[in-house]
Structure formats: structure tokens, C-alpha cells
């Protein structure tokens, strides 16, 4: 018998022997080269990458959330609804007269109330995740339909809370979360990096992560092996909910507002990035690294197209086309 040699080069260990990852690296490089060639003087500007680094994280975190739901063969169609609801509840918190007064007074109170609002947003995400998880794991509603329904409920509640128009008037500290910098890098990018690292470690190095992969591979065998499937699936949707709420905080921080129908196109994009990143929507397979690579590839693509003055509608169409192409490539690769 043999043991895994510890001497594998670091790069191989990072990338694994995953053909999907190698394919993604190639795609990303190709897009980068193509976009540079098509916009010789505009694409390779510091400003361009800086603006990507502010926009990318919210979608990246939603995509990671989607990947987690897909690990067990599920899907979470409520992520955008949760994100908006979380941001709106935080916005409502800032409207409380006492809070407004404290923020008006300035000083440490501003930071304190901002932290409180973030926590409230995360709690909303957690609660939404618990609802999804209970519907799926306890009542055994198929995830597509359960999250389709709860997505409507969350979006509907967001609408009820705002009555339609966007909530504005977040304090400066809130805007800093979406537009500030730490050590020269965009705050949202830091959030994405931390989330990605934590989720990557959770998926490969903890009981929860390994259990989710196993449940996704064979749910029946998981029961016979004594995995607490129901509880693990519940946890996974709680995680998905919290991640969605984080994305909601970033989105409202960046735009300094919150609205019930923000980021509607993010849902498809999150599914696309998760699938493109090598996640198997039938369950059992998915890596954070793959999702990040897919995210970067698509962000480069759409920023290049934007520089070329392509309309946002057409960029949506390109993304959809990309999904179809990836499905075709994956199929052809599996046929070999």
C-alpha cells in the first residue's frame, strides 16, 4: 500500500489533479489576453482593475453560496432575495430615531451602530437560511421549489418594508464597507478573500464540508453511514443564507442604498459561475478555487465588453451564452 507523497509540488497541491481547474486557468488567461488585445490602451489600466475589485466580491460571495447549496445536489434560488432583505433590514435599523440621533452625534457610537447593523443583516441571512434548510431537510421539499417560494417571500417582505422605493441614508461607515480601502485594497475584496478562505477550509478540513460532499455523492449511503444528513443540509443552507446577507451588505455599501429588486441578474450569474467553476449541480463536487477562477474570468470578460461600449443587456446575453458553451464543453470533455 502507498501513502500520499508529501513531496508534491505546491502548485500541484493547490490546483489538485482537477482537469476542470486547469481548463478554467486556460479560459481566464485567454479572456485576459483577448480583452487586452481588443482594448489595447484601456483594459490594462489600474482604474479598471480597481473597479472590478469593488464590484466582483458581492457576486463572488453569492456564487460561493450557490456552490455550497449545489454540493448536496440542491440549489438556492433565494440568494438575491436574502441579500436585499438583509440590506433593507439594516437600512430600517438606521432609520430608528434613536440610532439616527446616536449617529448624528458621531464618535464611537457610529461604529457601534454600524457593527450592530451588520450583525442584524447577518442574523436576517441566518434566519432565512434556517427557513430554507428546514423546508428542505425536514419537510423534504425539493430545493428548487422551496427556495423559489422563499425567494418570493423574502423579496416580498423586502418590498413590504420599503413600500417600493430604495432605502437611502446609510451612514458613512456603511458606505466604507462597500467603497473603502484597507492596506490599499478594496474593503469588499478583503471580505471576499476572507470568506473564500474560510469556506475553502470548511469544505475540505471539517466534518461539515466532508459530510456535504458525501451526501451530495450518494444521499442514501450517507444515511446508512450514520451521517446526520438533515442537520448537515440545514447547516449548509444557514451558511448560504449568511453568505447571501454578506453579499447584501457589500452591495448596499457600494451603492449606499438598498432596494427590493437590486441585483436581479445576480441569480443567474451566481448559478453560472458555480457551474462554470466545476461544481456539479447534481451534487458531490465543488471547489472554492474553481468558483473564484470562474468569477475572475467572467468579470474580466464583462469589464472588457463594457469598455467596448457593449450594452448591459447584451452582456447578460453573453453570460447566458457562456453558460451554454461551458455546458457543451463539459459534455464533450466527459465523452472522451
Amino acid at each position: 500500500m502507498t501513502t500520499t507523497p508529501e513531496t508534491r509540488p505546491l502548485i500541484r497541491r493547490l490546483l489538485g489533479s482537477d482537469a476542470a481547474i486547469a481548463q478554467l486557468v486556460v479560459i481566464t488567461v485567454l479572456i485576459f489576453v483577448a480583452m487586452t488585445a481588443m482594448n489595447p490602451d484601456k483594459f490594462l489600466r489600474y482604474y479598471n482593475f480597481e473597479s472590478i475589485s469593488y464590484i466582483m466580491p458581492e457576486l463572488g460571495i453569492l456564487s460561493i453560496a450557490m456552490m455550497i447549496a449545489m454540493l448536496t445536489g440542491g440549489i438556492d434560488l433565494s440568494v438575491v432575495g436574502v441579500a436585499n432583505l438583509a440590506a433593507i433590514v439594516a437600512g430600517v435599523y438606521f432609520r430608528i430615531p434613536a440610532v439616527q440621533e446616536a449617529i448624528g452625534a458621531g464618535g464611537a457610537g457610529v461604529v457601534m451602530h454600524t457593527v450592530a447593523a451588520v450583525l442584524i443583516a447577518l442574523l436576517v441571512g441566518l434566519a432565512a437560511g434556517v427557513i430554507n434548510g428546514l423546508l428542505i431537510a425536514r419537510l423534504r421539499i425539493i430545493p428548487i421549489l422551496a427556495t423559489l417560494g422563499t425567494g418570493q417571500i423574502f423579496a416580498g417582505l423586502a418590498l413590504v418594508l420599503t413600500g417600493g422605493p430604495a432605502i437611502v441614508g446609510f451612514p458613512q461607515t456603511w458606505a466604507w464597507i462597500g467603497t473603502g480601502k484597507i492596506l490599499g485594497l478594496a474593503t469588499p475584496l478583503w471580505v471576499l478573500i476572507v470568506v473564500a478562505l474560510l469556506v475553502a477550509v470548511a469544505l475540505t478540513r471539517t466534518t461539515l464540508g466532508v459530510s456535504l460532499m458525501l451526501i451530495g455523492t450518494n444521499p442514501r449511503a450517507a444515511i446508512f453511514a450514520g451521517i446526520r444528513s438533515g442537520r448537515m443540509i440545514l447547516y449548509s443552507y444557514m451558511l448560504t443564507g449568511v453568505l447571501s446577507a454578506i453579499a447584501g451588505v457589500l452591495l448596499s455599501g457600494r451603492t449606499n442604498s438598498a432596494k427590493a429588486d437590486f441585483g436581479a441578474s445576480y441569480l443567474l450569474q451566481a448559478v453560472l459561475i458555480a457551474v462554470l467553476g466545476g461544481t456539479n449541480p447534481a451534487g458531490g463536487k465543488g471547489r472554492v478555487l474553481g468558483v473564484l477562477l470562474a468569477l475572475i474570468a467572467l468579470m474580466l470578460l464583462s469589464s472588457g465588453l463594457q469598455i467596448m461600449r457593449m450594452s448591459n443587456f447584451l452582456i447578460d446575453a453573453v453570460w447566458g451564452g457562456f453558460l451554454v458553451v461551458v455546458i457543451a464543453i463539459n459534455y464533450l470533455r466527459s465523452q472522451k
Binding site: T206, T207, T217, A221, A222
Partner: peptide, 30 residues
């Protein structure tokens, strides 16, 4: 259909039922 996780490694198939016991703190003890 009820026993093995076919695409997963033999290692995971072996330790699946003792994952909780192989934990040190939050993490699996590799």
C-alpha cells in the same frame, strides 16, 4: 446505492462513520 460513495476516495469511504471522532477542535485531524 446504499453503501459506497463511488466517485469519492477510499479514504473518505472508510472514515465516513467516524468523522466526528477524528475531529480536533473545529477541524479534521488529517
Amino acid at each position: 446505492t446504499e453503501g459506497l460513495f463511488l466517485p469519492q476516495s477510499i479514504e473518505r469511504n472508510l472514515v465516513v462513520s467516524i468523522l466526528d471522532r477524528l475531529r480536533r477542535g473545529l477541524f479534521l485531524d488529517r
